[in-house]
Lab assay of single mutants.
Amino acid sequence: CHSECLGNCSQPDDPTKCVACRNFYLDGRCVETCPPPYYHFQDWRCVNFSFCQDLHHKCKNSRRQGCHQYVIHNNKCIPECPSGYTMNSSNLLCTPCLGPCPKVCHLLEGEKTIDSVTSAQELRGCTVINGSLIINIRGGNNLAAELEANLGLIEEISGYLKIRRSYALVSLSFFRKLRLIRGETLEIGNYSFYALDNQNLRQLWDWSKHNLTITQGKLFFHYNPKLCLSEIHKMEEVSGTKGRQERNDIALKTNGDQASCENELLKFSYIRTSFDKILLRWEPYWPPDFRDLLGFMLFYKEAPYQNVTEFDGQDACGSNSWTVVDIDPPLRSNDPKSQNHPGWLMRGLKPWTQYAIFVKTLVTFSDERRTYGAKSDIIYVQTDATNPSVPLDPISVSNSSSQIILKWKPPSDPNGNITHYLVFWERQAEDSELFELDYCLKGLKLPSRTWSPPFESEDSQKHNQSEYEDSAGECCSCPKTDSQILKELEESSFRKTFEDYLHNVVFVPRKT
Protein backbone atom coordinates (compact mmCIF):
# COMPACT_ATOMS: atom_id res chain seq x y z
CA CYS A 1 0.00 0.00 0.00
CA HIS A 2 0.96 3.63 -0.45
CA SER A 3 2.76 5.27 2.49
CA GLU A 4 -0.26 7.56 3.09
CA CYS A 5 -2.60 4.58 3.48
CA LEU A 6 -3.61 3.32 6.90
CA GLY A 7 -5.01 -0.14 7.58
CA ASN A 8 -5.32 -1.54 4.07
CA CYS A 9 -5.79 -0.69 0.40
CA SER A 10 -7.47 -2.10 -2.71
CA GLN A 11 -4.55 -1.38 -5.08
CA PRO A 12 -0.80 -1.21 -4.35
CA ASP A 13 1.06 2.11 -4.25
CA ASP A 14 -2.05 4.17 -5.04
CA PRO A 15 -3.09 6.93 -2.56
CA THR A 16 -6.63 6.93 -4.00
CA LYS A 17 -7.27 3.27 -3.09
CA CYS A 18 -6.68 3.49 0.67
CA VAL A 19 -9.17 2.14 3.20
CA ALA A 20 -8.25 5.03 5.52
CA CYS A 21 -5.78 7.91 5.37
CA ARG A 22 -2.75 8.19 7.60
CA ASN A 23 -2.86 12.03 7.58
CA PHE A 24 -5.45 13.96 5.51
CA TYR A 25 -8.11 13.26 2.90
CA LEU A 26 -8.45 15.58 -0.13
CA ASP A 27 -10.76 15.00 -3.11
CA GLY A 28 -10.60 11.19 -2.98
CA ARG A 29 -6.89 10.80 -2.22
CA CYS A 30 -4.72 10.65 0.90
CA VAL A 31 -2.15 13.44 1.30
CA GLU A 32 0.53 14.22 3.86
CA THR A 33 -0.68 17.79 4.40
CA CYS A 34 -3.30 20.10 2.92
CA PRO A 35 -1.85 22.24 0.10
CA PRO A 36 -2.95 25.87 -0.40
CA PRO A 37 -5.69 27.02 -0.65
CA TYR A 38 -7.01 24.18 1.54
CA TYR A 39 -7.17 24.04 5.35
CA HIS A 40 -6.98 21.23 7.89
CA PHE A 41 -10.39 20.33 9.29
CA GLN A 42 -10.93 18.07 12.33
CA ASP A 43 -7.41 16.62 11.83
CA TRP A 44 -8.38 14.38 8.87
CA ARG A 45 -9.95 16.40 6.04
CA CYS A 46 -8.85 19.20 3.73
CA VAL A 47 -11.50 21.89 3.13
CA ASN A 48 -11.49 25.19 1.24
CA PHE A 49 -12.33 28.67 2.56
CA SER A 50 -15.94 28.53 1.35
CA PHE A 51 -16.61 25.38 3.37
CA CYS A 52 -15.28 26.96 6.58
CA GLN A 53 -17.14 30.22 5.88
CA ASP A 54 -20.44 28.36 5.37
CA LEU A 55 -20.03 26.66 8.76
CA HIS A 56 -19.35 30.04 10.38
CA HIS A 57 -22.42 31.76 8.90
CA LYS A 58 -24.69 28.76 9.50
CA CYS A 59 -24.00 28.88 13.25
CA LYS A 60 -24.10 32.69 13.38
CA ASN A 61 -27.52 32.85 11.71
CA SER A 62 -29.05 29.96 13.66
CA ARG A 63 -28.10 31.35 17.11
CA ARG A 64 -28.22 27.83 18.47
CA GLN A 65 -26.48 27.28 21.77
CA GLY A 66 -23.46 25.01 21.49
CA CYS A 67 -22.70 25.48 17.79
CA HIS A 68 -19.32 26.85 16.71
CA GLN A 69 -18.58 29.80 14.46
CA TYR A 70 -15.56 28.30 12.72
CA VAL A 71 -12.47 30.45 12.10
CA ILE A 72 -9.10 30.01 10.37
CA HIS A 73 -5.84 29.82 12.31
CA ASN A 74 -2.45 28.29 11.41
CA ASN A 75 -3.82 26.80 8.16
CA LYS A 76 -6.65 25.11 10.09
CA CYS A 77 -10.42 25.54 10.18
CA ILE A 78 -11.12 25.40 13.94
CA PRO A 79 -14.21 26.04 16.14
CA GLU A 80 -12.83 29.21 17.79
CA CYS A 81 -9.70 31.32 18.09
CA PRO A 82 -7.16 30.20 20.71
CA SER A 83 -6.44 32.24 23.81
CA GLY A 84 -4.83 35.59 23.01
CA TYR A 85 -6.39 35.87 19.52
CA THR A 86 -9.53 37.45 18.12
CA MET A 87 -11.34 36.91 14.81
CA ASN A 88 -11.09 39.30 11.86
CA SER A 89 -14.68 39.37 10.56
CA SER A 90 -13.63 40.09 6.95
CA ASN A 91 -11.52 36.96 6.39
CA LEU A 92 -12.23 34.81 9.50
CA LEU A 93 -8.50 34.84 10.37
CA CYS A 94 -7.43 34.82 14.03
CA THR A 95 -5.23 37.83 14.79
CA PRO A 96 -3.34 38.58 18.04
CA CYS A 97 -5.21 40.79 20.50
CA LEU A 98 -3.90 44.23 21.37
CA GLY A 99 -4.32 44.04 25.12
CA PRO A 100 -7.10 41.92 26.67
CA CYS A 101 -9.05 39.94 24.08
CA PRO A 102 -12.72 40.76 23.48
CA LYS A 103 -15.25 38.14 24.49
CA VAL A 104 -18.41 38.08 22.37
CA CYS A 105 -21.48 36.72 24.16
CA HIS A 106 -24.41 35.64 21.97
CA LEU A 107 -27.78 35.91 23.71
CA LEU A 108 -30.52 33.35 23.20
CA GLU A 109 -33.63 34.84 21.57
CA GLY A 110 -31.64 38.05 21.02
CA GLU A 111 -32.06 39.51 24.52
CA LYS A 112 -31.37 38.81 28.19
CA THR A 113 -33.04 40.13 31.34
CA ILE A 114 -30.79 40.90 34.30
CA ASP A 115 -33.05 40.63 37.35
CA SER A 116 -30.55 39.39 39.96
CA VAL A 117 -26.86 39.08 40.71
CA THR A 118 -27.02 35.44 39.59
CA SER A 119 -28.24 36.37 36.10
CA ALA A 120 -25.56 39.07 35.88
CA GLN A 121 -22.86 36.50 36.70
CA GLU A 122 -23.73 34.64 33.48
CA LEU A 123 -22.25 37.59 31.53
CA ARG A 124 -19.07 37.85 33.59
CA GLY A 125 -16.09 38.67 31.36
CA CYS A 126 -18.19 39.56 28.29
CA THR A 127 -16.96 42.59 26.35
CA VAL A 128 -19.39 42.49 23.40
CA ILE A 129 -23.09 41.63 23.81
CA ASN A 130 -24.59 40.27 20.60
CA GLY A 131 -28.18 41.13 21.46
CA SER A 132 -30.09 43.41 23.83
CA LEU A 133 -29.96 43.82 27.61
CA ILE A 134 -32.90 44.48 29.93
CA ILE A 135 -32.00 45.55 33.49
CA ASN A 136 -34.84 44.88 35.95
CA ILE A 137 -33.38 44.67 39.46
CA ARG A 138 -35.69 45.25 42.43
CA GLY A 139 -33.25 44.52 45.29
CA GLY A 140 -30.20 42.67 46.57
CA ASN A 141 -27.08 42.98 48.70
CA ASN A 142 -24.00 44.93 47.64
CA LEU A 143 -25.55 45.44 44.22
CA ALA A 144 -23.29 48.18 42.85
CA ALA A 145 -20.11 46.18 43.44
CA GLU A 146 -21.62 42.91 42.16
CA LEU A 147 -22.97 44.48 38.97
CA GLU A 148 -19.66 46.19 38.25
CA ALA A 149 -17.76 42.93 38.78
CA ASN A 150 -20.00 41.07 36.31
CA LEU A 151 -21.04 43.73 33.78
CA GLY A 152 -18.19 46.21 34.09
CA LEU A 153 -16.22 44.86 31.10
CA ILE A 154 -19.03 45.24 28.55
CA GLU A 155 -17.91 47.69 25.86
CA GLU A 156 -20.52 47.20 23.15
CA ILE A 157 -24.18 46.19 22.86
CA SER A 158 -25.42 45.35 19.37
CA GLY A 159 -29.12 45.80 20.23
CA TYR A 160 -30.75 48.11 22.76
CA LEU A 161 -30.32 48.76 26.51
CA LYS A 162 -33.47 48.89 28.62
CA ILE A 163 -33.56 49.95 32.30
CA ARG A 164 -37.02 49.11 33.62
CA ARG A 165 -38.37 49.27 37.19
CA SER A 166 -34.91 48.83 38.69
CA TYR A 167 -35.70 50.35 42.07
CA ALA A 168 -32.34 49.31 43.51
CA LEU A 169 -30.24 51.32 41.04
CA VAL A 170 -28.87 54.76 41.84
CA SER A 171 -26.46 55.02 38.91
CA LEU A 172 -25.47 53.17 35.73
CA SER A 173 -21.77 53.65 36.45
CA PHE A 174 -21.40 49.86 36.87
CA PHE A 175 -21.33 49.83 33.03
CA ARG A 176 -17.93 51.47 33.40
CA LYS A 177 -16.59 50.43 29.97
CA LEU A 178 -19.75 50.70 27.86
CA ARG A 179 -18.82 52.85 24.85
CA LEU A 180 -21.19 51.81 22.04
CA ILE A 181 -24.87 50.89 21.61
CA ARG A 182 -25.39 49.96 17.97
CA GLY A 183 -29.18 49.76 17.96
CA GLU A 184 -29.27 47.02 15.31
CA THR A 185 -32.36 45.74 17.17
CA LEU A 186 -34.66 48.41 18.61
CA GLU A 187 -37.28 48.42 21.33
CA ILE A 188 -40.86 49.04 20.19
CA GLY A 189 -40.98 52.67 19.09
CA ASN A 190 -37.45 52.66 17.63
CA TYR A 191 -35.69 53.16 20.97
CA SER A 192 -32.11 52.02 21.57
CA PHE A 193 -31.96 53.34 25.18
CA TYR A 194 -35.07 52.95 27.32
CA ALA A 195 -35.46 54.08 30.96
CA LEU A 196 -38.87 53.58 32.56
CA ASP A 197 -40.03 53.83 36.20
CA ASN A 198 -36.71 53.80 38.04
CA GLN A 199 -37.61 55.39 41.36
CA ASN A 200 -34.07 55.90 42.71
CA LEU A 201 -32.00 56.44 39.55
CA ARG A 202 -30.07 59.69 40.07
CA GLN A 203 -27.16 59.46 37.65
CA LEU A 204 -26.57 57.83 34.28
CA TRP A 205 -22.78 58.20 34.02
CA ASP A 206 -20.17 60.74 35.01
CA TRP A 207 -20.10 62.46 31.63
CA SER A 208 -16.82 64.21 32.37
CA LYS A 209 -15.11 60.80 32.30
CA HIS A 210 -17.42 58.61 30.19
CA ASN A 211 -18.10 58.59 26.44
CA LEU A 212 -21.06 56.75 24.92
CA THR A 213 -22.09 56.55 21.27
CA ILE A 214 -25.55 55.40 20.15
CA THR A 215 -25.46 54.60 16.43
CA GLN A 216 -29.17 54.13 15.77
CA GLY A 217 -32.41 54.68 17.62
CA LYS A 218 -33.86 57.19 20.08
CA LEU A 219 -33.85 57.78 23.84
CA PHE A 220 -36.87 57.14 26.08
CA PHE A 221 -37.16 58.55 29.64
CA HIS A 222 -40.39 58.37 31.67
CA TYR A 223 -41.13 58.17 35.41
CA ASN A 224 -37.60 58.61 36.73
CA PRO A 225 -38.44 61.06 39.55
CA LYS A 226 -34.90 61.52 40.89
CA LEU A 227 -33.12 61.84 37.53
CA CYS A 228 -32.56 65.49 36.63
CA LEU A 229 -33.43 66.62 33.13
CA SER A 230 -29.96 68.15 32.83
CA GLU A 231 -28.51 64.64 33.12
CA ILE A 232 -30.73 63.43 30.26
CA HIS A 233 -29.88 66.40 28.03
CA LYS A 234 -26.18 65.81 28.67
CA MET A 235 -26.61 62.21 27.48
CA GLU A 236 -28.24 63.49 24.28
CA GLU A 237 -25.19 65.64 23.55
CA VAL A 238 -22.56 63.02 24.41
CA SER A 239 -24.23 60.04 22.69
CA GLY A 240 -25.03 61.89 19.46
CA THR A 241 -28.80 61.40 19.74
CA LYS A 242 -29.74 65.07 20.07
CA GLY A 243 -32.49 65.89 17.60
CA ARG A 244 -33.68 62.29 17.16
CA GLN A 245 -36.20 62.37 20.01
CA GLU A 246 -39.80 63.40 19.54
CA ARG A 247 -41.70 65.57 21.99
CA ASN A 248 -43.08 62.77 24.17
CA ASP A 249 -39.94 60.63 24.30
CA ILE A 250 -38.53 62.54 27.29
CA ALA A 251 -41.20 63.47 29.84
CA LEU A 252 -40.69 66.90 31.41
CA LYS A 253 -43.07 66.28 34.33
CA THR A 254 -42.13 62.76 35.46
CA ASN A 255 -38.33 63.01 35.25
CA GLY A 256 -36.57 64.82 38.09
CA ASP A 257 -39.80 65.94 39.75
CA GLN A 258 -38.54 64.64 43.14
CA ALA A 259 -34.86 65.46 42.64
CA SER A 260 -32.68 68.16 44.08
CA CYS A 261 -31.13 69.23 40.82
CA GLU A 262 -28.31 71.48 41.90
CA ASN A 263 -27.80 74.34 39.49
CA GLU A 264 -25.18 76.28 41.47
CA LEU A 265 -21.62 75.43 42.45
CA LEU A 266 -20.54 75.49 46.10
CA LYS A 267 -16.93 76.52 46.62
CA PHE A 268 -14.81 75.71 49.65
CA SER A 269 -13.42 78.85 51.29
CA TYR A 270 -11.20 77.35 54.02
CA ILE A 271 -9.40 74.02 54.46
CA ARG A 272 -7.08 73.17 57.34
CA THR A 273 -5.67 69.77 58.25
CA SER A 274 -4.03 67.97 61.14
CA PHE A 275 -3.05 64.31 61.45
CA ASP A 276 -6.58 63.20 62.42
CA LYS A 277 -8.84 66.17 61.62
CA ILE A 278 -9.90 68.29 58.65
CA LEU A 279 -11.62 71.65 59.13
CA LEU A 280 -13.77 72.76 56.19
CA ARG A 281 -15.71 75.92 55.42
CA TRP A 282 -17.61 76.79 52.27
CA GLU A 283 -19.41 79.77 50.82
CA PRO A 284 -22.94 80.37 52.12
CA TYR A 285 -25.89 79.47 49.95
CA TRP A 286 -29.51 80.54 50.30
CA PRO A 287 -32.40 79.68 47.94
CA PRO A 288 -34.87 82.45 46.96
CA ASP A 289 -36.95 81.50 50.00
CA PHE A 290 -34.32 80.94 52.71
CA ARG A 291 -36.78 78.77 54.65
CA ASP A 292 -36.42 76.08 51.95
CA LEU A 293 -32.83 75.38 53.03
CA LEU A 294 -32.88 72.49 55.50
CA GLY A 295 -29.11 72.14 55.78
CA PHE A 296 -26.05 70.66 54.12
CA MET A 297 -24.85 67.12 53.60
CA LEU A 298 -21.09 66.48 53.78
CA PHE A 299 -19.86 63.33 52.01
CA TYR A 300 -16.37 61.93 52.51
CA LYS A 301 -14.45 58.66 52.17
CA GLU A 302 -10.90 57.38 51.81
CA ALA A 303 -9.63 57.78 48.25
CA PRO A 304 -6.15 56.45 47.43
CA TYR A 305 -6.61 57.67 43.83
CA GLN A 306 -8.24 60.80 42.49
CA ASN A 307 -10.82 59.03 40.33
CA VAL A 308 -13.88 59.02 42.61
CA THR A 309 -17.41 59.82 41.42
CA GLU A 310 -20.42 60.72 43.55
CA PHE A 311 -22.37 57.50 43.03
CA ASP A 312 -19.53 54.98 43.26
CA GLY A 313 -20.63 51.97 45.33
CA GLN A 314 -24.15 53.28 46.00
CA ASP A 315 -27.44 51.49 45.54
CA ALA A 316 -30.94 52.04 46.88
CA CYS A 317 -30.75 48.99 49.17
CA GLY A 318 -28.46 50.59 51.74
CA SER A 319 -24.99 50.13 50.29
CA ASN A 320 -23.07 53.40 50.39
CA SER A 321 -19.31 53.81 50.42
CA TRP A 322 -19.57 57.46 51.52
CA THR A 323 -19.77 58.68 55.10
CA VAL A 324 -22.55 61.28 55.31
CA VAL A 325 -22.79 64.10 57.88
CA ASP A 326 -25.89 66.30 58.22
CA ILE A 327 -25.09 69.93 59.01
CA ASP A 328 -27.57 72.60 60.09
CA PRO A 329 -27.66 75.85 58.12
CA PRO A 330 -25.92 78.86 59.74
CA LEU A 331 -27.76 81.81 61.17
CA ARG A 332 -28.93 84.11 58.40
CA SER A 333 -27.78 87.72 58.44
CA ASN A 334 -29.39 90.60 56.58
CA ASP A 335 -25.94 91.95 55.70
CA PRO A 336 -24.43 89.91 52.83
CA LYS A 337 -20.89 90.88 53.90
CA SER A 338 -21.31 89.45 57.39
CA GLN A 339 -22.79 86.12 56.34
CA ASN A 340 -21.40 83.20 58.32
CA HIS A 341 -19.64 80.55 56.27
CA PRO A 342 -21.00 77.10 57.14
CA GLY A 343 -18.44 74.43 57.94
CA TRP A 344 -17.59 71.21 59.73
CA LEU A 345 -14.71 69.68 61.67
CA MET A 346 -14.10 66.10 60.52
CA ARG A 347 -12.71 64.02 63.40
CA GLY A 348 -11.29 60.55 63.87
CA LEU A 349 -9.52 60.40 60.52
CA LYS A 350 -6.48 58.32 59.64
CA PRO A 351 -3.09 60.07 59.49
CA TRP A 352 -1.42 60.55 56.12
CA THR A 353 -4.56 59.45 54.24
CA GLN A 354 -6.21 61.09 51.24
CA TYR A 355 -9.95 61.71 51.47
CA ALA A 356 -12.48 62.57 48.75
CA ILE A 357 -14.93 65.22 49.97
CA PHE A 358 -17.93 67.07 48.57
CA VAL A 359 -20.88 68.94 50.05
CA LYS A 360 -24.40 69.54 48.75
CA THR A 361 -27.48 71.37 49.96
CA LEU A 362 -30.66 69.82 51.29
CA VAL A 363 -33.67 71.90 50.20
CA THR A 364 -37.42 71.49 50.06
CA PHE A 365 -39.40 71.85 46.85
CA SER A 366 -40.67 75.29 46.02
CA ASP A 367 -44.28 76.04 45.27
CA GLU A 368 -43.40 76.85 41.65
CA ARG A 369 -42.18 73.21 41.22
CA ARG A 370 -38.70 74.56 40.52
CA THR A 371 -35.77 72.82 42.10
CA TYR A 372 -32.98 74.80 43.66
CA GLY A 373 -29.76 73.68 45.22
CA ALA A 374 -26.00 73.77 45.11
CA LYS A 375 -23.23 71.19 45.16
CA SER A 376 -19.46 71.37 45.29
CA ASP A 377 -16.98 69.55 43.12
CA ILE A 378 -15.25 66.54 44.65
CA ILE A 379 -12.01 67.68 46.28
CA TYR A 380 -9.15 65.59 47.63
CA VAL A 381 -7.55 66.45 50.98
CA GLN A 382 -4.76 64.55 52.71
CA THR A 383 -4.30 64.50 56.46
CA ASP A 384 -0.92 65.32 57.99
CA ALA A 385 1.72 62.83 59.03
CA THR A 386 2.35 61.92 62.66
CA ASN A 387 4.52 59.57 64.70
CA PRO A 388 4.47 56.01 63.40
CA SER A 389 3.61 53.05 65.55
CA VAL A 390 6.46 50.98 66.99
CA PRO A 391 8.41 48.59 64.73
CA LEU A 392 7.20 45.01 64.92
CA ASP A 393 8.95 41.80 65.96
CA PRO A 394 12.42 43.08 66.94
CA ILE A 395 15.07 40.34 66.94
CA SER A 396 18.61 40.69 68.33
CA VAL A 397 21.33 38.08 67.85
CA SER A 398 25.03 38.27 68.78
CA ASN A 399 27.17 36.61 66.13
CA SER A 400 30.56 37.50 67.69
CA SER A 401 32.14 39.04 70.80
CA SER A 402 31.83 42.55 69.37
CA GLN A 403 28.67 42.55 67.20
CA ILE A 404 24.91 42.41 67.68
CA ILE A 405 22.60 41.95 64.70
CA LEU A 406 19.23 43.70 65.10
CA LYS A 407 16.28 43.04 62.80
CA TRP A 408 12.66 44.24 62.81
CA LYS A 409 9.57 44.60 60.65
CA PRO A 410 8.05 47.94 59.56
CA PRO A 411 5.35 49.40 61.81
CA SER A 412 1.75 48.46 61.09
CA ASP A 413 0.77 52.16 60.94
CA PRO A 414 3.55 54.19 59.29
CA ASN A 415 1.43 57.39 59.46
CA GLY A 416 3.66 58.99 56.83
CA ASN A 417 6.73 58.32 54.73
CA ILE A 418 9.31 56.53 56.89
CA THR A 419 12.76 57.75 55.84
CA HIS A 420 14.95 56.25 58.57
CA TYR A 421 14.93 54.47 61.94
CA LEU A 422 16.61 55.52 65.20
CA VAL A 423 18.39 52.76 67.12
CA PHE A 424 19.30 53.38 70.79
CA TRP A 425 21.43 51.09 72.93
CA GLU A 426 22.96 51.13 76.40
CA ARG A 427 25.71 49.02 77.92
CA GLN A 428 24.58 46.98 80.91
CA ALA A 429 26.62 45.53 83.78
CA GLU A 430 27.73 41.90 83.43
CA ASP A 431 25.55 39.33 85.18
CA SER A 432 27.01 38.35 88.58
CA GLU A 433 25.83 34.81 87.90
CA LEU A 434 28.63 34.36 85.38
CA PHE A 435 31.28 34.99 88.10
CA GLU A 436 29.71 32.82 90.82
CA LEU A 437 29.24 29.66 88.75
CA ASP A 438 31.60 26.68 89.13
CA TYR A 439 32.53 25.96 85.55
CA CYS A 440 34.10 22.60 86.48
CA LEU A 441 30.71 21.05 87.22
CA LYS A 442 29.65 18.45 84.68
CA GLY A 443 26.50 19.06 82.70
CA LEU A 444 26.65 22.77 83.33
CA LYS A 445 24.75 24.75 80.74
CA LEU A 446 26.11 28.25 80.34
CA PRO A 447 23.62 31.12 80.28
CA SER A 448 22.89 32.17 76.73
CA ARG A 449 21.92 35.57 75.49
CA THR A 450 21.02 34.47 71.97
CA TRP A 451 17.47 35.16 70.87
CA SER A 452 14.97 32.36 70.85
CA PRO A 453 11.49 32.72 69.35
CA PRO A 454 8.64 33.08 71.82
CA PHE A 455 6.33 30.13 72.20
CA GLU A 456 3.05 29.52 73.88
CA SER A 457 3.07 27.42 76.99
CA GLU A 458 0.88 24.40 77.31
CA ASP A 459 -1.12 26.16 80.01
CA SER A 460 -1.93 29.06 77.73
CA GLN A 461 -2.95 26.70 74.95
CA LYS A 462 -5.23 24.83 77.31
CA HIS A 463 -6.74 28.11 78.45
CA ASN A 464 -7.36 29.21 74.87
CA GLN A 465 -8.92 25.88 73.99
CA SER A 466 -11.16 25.80 77.05
CA GLU A 467 -14.74 26.83 76.64
CA TYR A 468 -15.19 27.51 80.33
CA GLU A 469 -13.65 29.95 82.73
CA ASP A 470 -10.96 28.40 84.89
CA SER A 471 -11.00 28.46 88.65
CA ALA A 472 -8.50 31.31 88.90
CA GLY A 473 -10.63 33.49 86.66
CA GLU A 474 -7.76 34.26 84.26
CA CYS A 475 -9.52 33.14 81.06
CA CYS A 476 -13.10 33.16 79.90
CA SER A 477 -14.96 31.84 76.88
CA CYS A 478 -15.42 34.05 73.84
CA PRO A 479 -18.93 35.39 73.17
CA LYS A 480 -20.84 33.42 70.55
CA THR A 481 -21.47 34.98 67.17
CA ASP A 482 -24.94 35.47 65.69
CA SER A 483 -24.35 32.62 63.22
CA GLN A 484 -23.36 30.24 66.05
CA ILE A 485 -26.44 31.17 68.07
CA LEU A 486 -28.67 30.70 65.00
CA LYS A 487 -27.08 27.31 64.27
CA GLU A 488 -27.68 26.14 67.85
CA LEU A 489 -31.32 27.22 67.65
CA GLU A 490 -31.77 25.32 64.38
CA GLU A 491 -30.17 22.18 65.86
CA SER A 492 -32.38 22.42 68.95
CA SER A 493 -35.49 22.82 66.79
CA PHE A 494 -34.45 19.84 64.66
CA ARG A 495 -33.95 17.64 67.75
CA LYS A 496 -37.42 18.52 69.03
CA THR A 497 -39.02 17.83 65.65
CA PHE A 498 -37.18 14.52 65.31
CA GLU A 499 -38.16 13.46 68.83
CA ASP A 500 -41.82 14.24 68.09
CA TYR A 501 -41.54 12.21 64.88
CA LEU A 502 -40.13 9.20 66.78
CA HIS A 503 -42.94 9.34 69.32
CA ASN A 504 -45.53 9.45 66.55
CA VAL A 505 -43.98 6.50 64.68
CA VAL A 506 -42.98 4.22 67.58
CA PHE A 507 -46.01 4.71 69.78
CA VAL A 508 -49.12 3.72 67.83
CA PRO A 509 -52.56 3.94 69.47
CA ARG A 510 -53.94 0.49 70.38
CA LYS A 511 -56.98 -0.51 68.41
CA THR A 512 -60.07 -0.74 70.60
Rank of each mutant, 00 (worst) to 15 (best):
K103H: 08
K103Y: 04
K103Q: 04
V104S: 07
C105K: 03
L107N: 14
L108V: 13
K112Y: 14
I114K: 00
I114Y: 05
I114F: 05
D115N: 08
S116H: 09
V117A: 12
T118K: 12
T118H: 14
Q121L: 09
Q121H: 10
Q121I: 13
E122I: 02
L123F: 10
C126E: 01
I129W: 10
S132R: 01
S132A: 14
L133G: 00
L133I: 02
G139C: 04
G139Y: 04
G139T: 04
G140P: 12
N141W: 08
L143R: 06
E146H: 15
E146Y: 11
L147K: 00
A149H: 10
L151H: 00
L153W: 14
E155H: 14
E155T: 10
E156T: 13
I157F: 02
S158T: 09
S158K: 06
L161D: 00
K162H: 13
I163T: 06
I163F: 12
R165I: 15
L169T: 07
S173A: 11
F174V: 08
F175Q: 00
K177Q: 11
L178F: 03
L178P: 00
R179F: 08
R179K: 13
G183Y: 01
G183P: 02
E187C: 15
E187S: 06
E187F: 10
G189I: 01
N190Q: 04
Y191K: 07
Y191N: 07
S192A: 01
F193D: 01
Y194Q: 08
L196R: 07
N198C: 00
N198V: 01
D206Y: 07
D206K: 14
S208Y: 10
K209T: 13
K209W: 08
K209P: 11
L212N: 01
T213K: 04
I214R: 08
I214T: 11
T215P: 15
T215Y: 06
Q216V: 09
Q216P: 02
Q216A: 08
G217K: 03
K218T: 14
K218A: 06
K218R: 13
L219W: 14
F220M: 04
F220V: 09
F220R: 10
H222W: 06
N224M: 04
P225S: 04
P225L: 10
C228S: 15
L229A: 14
E231D: 15
E231F: 12
I232M: 04
H233G: 01
K234W: 09
E236W: 15
V238I: 09
T241S: 08
K242A: 07
K242N: 11
Q245T: 10
E246A: 05
E246H: 05
R247Q: 11
R247H: 07
R247P: 07
D249I: 14
I250V: 15
A251Q: 09
L252M: 13
K253G: 07
K253S: 06
K253C: 12
T254V: 05
T254K: 13
N255P: 07
N255K: 04
G256M: 11
D257L: 09
Q258Y: 15
E264W: 14
E264Q: 07
L265Q: 14
L266A: 03
L266N: 01
L266K: 01
S269T: 13
I271M: 05
T273H: 08
L279I: 11
R281I: 08
W282A: 02
E283W: 06
Y285L: 14
W286L: 14
P287D: 04
F290T: 05
R291E: 01
D292E: 15
D292W: 13
G295N: 02
G295I: 11
F299W: 05
Y300F: 09
Y300A: 09
A303M: 05
P304G: 03
Y305T: 12
F311A: 11
F311L: 05
D312R: 12
D315P: 05
N320A: 10
N320C: 06
W322H: 12
T323A: 10
V324Y: 14
V325S: 12
V325R: 05
V325C: 15
I327L: 12
I327P: 04
I327H: 03
P329H: 04
P330F: 15
L331M: 11
S333V: 10
N334C: 03
D335P: 03
P336R: 15
P336T: 08
S338M: 11
Q339F: 13
Q339R: 07
Q339E: 06
Q339Y: 01
P342E: 13
L345A: 02
R347G: 03
G348Y: 02
G348I: 02
K350R: 14
P351F: 06
W352D: 13
W352L: 12
T353Y: 08
I357C: 14
K360C: 09
K360V: 06
T361Q: 11
L362G: 15
L362E: 03
V363A: 15
T364A: 15
F365P: 11
E368T: 14
R370A: 02
G373S: 13
S376W: 01
I378V: 14
I379W: 06
Y380P: 00
V381A: 08
T383K: 00
A385P: 12
A385E: 15
S389T: 14
P391R: 01
P391M: 03
L392W: 09
D393A: 14
D393N: 02
P394W: 13
I395R: 13
I395Q: 08
N399W: 11
S401T: 12
S402W: 11
Q403G: 06
I405L: 10
I405R: 08
K407P: 00
K407R: 04
K409W: 15
P411D: 01
